[in-house]
């Protein structure tokens, strides 16, 4: 059991989008800044920084979480998926495609978080009702208020994935 003192750093190892990454972090480093600043994965956005807006949503060991409210040290050993890890061999994930097809974004700030929440929903519920989509996105805010098209984008992705 390794103890890290104040002002010391600690080595953590995580698997991000299938690649093992290792880094020295301060205990107070938040996971979202670790992803952005240490790993250069700036697709995960910092919005409110107070666990409200969901712009920083990622999958941590397969579950959607707000990475602004998790310490990087807590994620040591975990598997992480960010929006950069969704495309396969150059082909966008159906949810990403859906946001394009249905104009599910305006300024784009909330988009990575919305996409990650939608991906998480469709993993466990591939044919969600509109009500289920709305509930699944309750932890993601769009300040452009583009919700209608975001919901259409998720519906599109569900229909596309089924094929």
């Amino acid at each position: 059991m390794e103890q890290t003192m104040k002002d010391e750093t600690r080595t953590i190892a995580v698997t991000v989008n299938g690649t093992k990454r290792q880094a020295e972090v301060e205990p107070r480093e938040l996971l979202v800044y670790f992803l952005r600043d240490h790993l250069g994965l700036t697709g995960t956005h910092v919005g409110c920084d107070t666990s409200q807006c969901g712009a920083c949503t990622i999958l941590l060991d397969g579950r959607s979480v707000k990475s602004c409210t998790i310490l990087a040290v807590q994620a040591d050993g975990a598997e992480i998926t960010t929006v950069e890890g969704l495309a396969r061999e150059g082909a966008l994930h159906p949810v990403q495609e859906g946001f394009g097809e249905k104009h599910g974004l305006q300024c784009g700030y909330c988009t990575p978080g919305m996409i990650m929440s939608a991906v998480y929903l469709l993993k466990s519920n591939p044919r969600p009702s509109e009500e289920e989509i709305r509930r699944a996105l309750e932890g993601n805010l769009c300040r452009c208020t583009g919700y209608v098209n975001i919901i259409e984008a998720v519906k599109w992705a569900a229909a596309a994935s089924k094929k």
Binding site: M1, E2, Q3, T4, M5, K6, D7, E8, R10, E26, P27, R28, E29, L30, Y33, D49, T50, L71, V73, D76
Partner: peptide, 16 residues
């Protein structure tokens, strides 16, 4: 927005 500095330890048992 970061927390102030702190030390960190992750025990592996309740006893620890």
């Amino acid at each position: 927005m970061f927390p102030a500095n702190f030390g960190y330890v992750a025990p592996r048992s309740l006893q620890e």
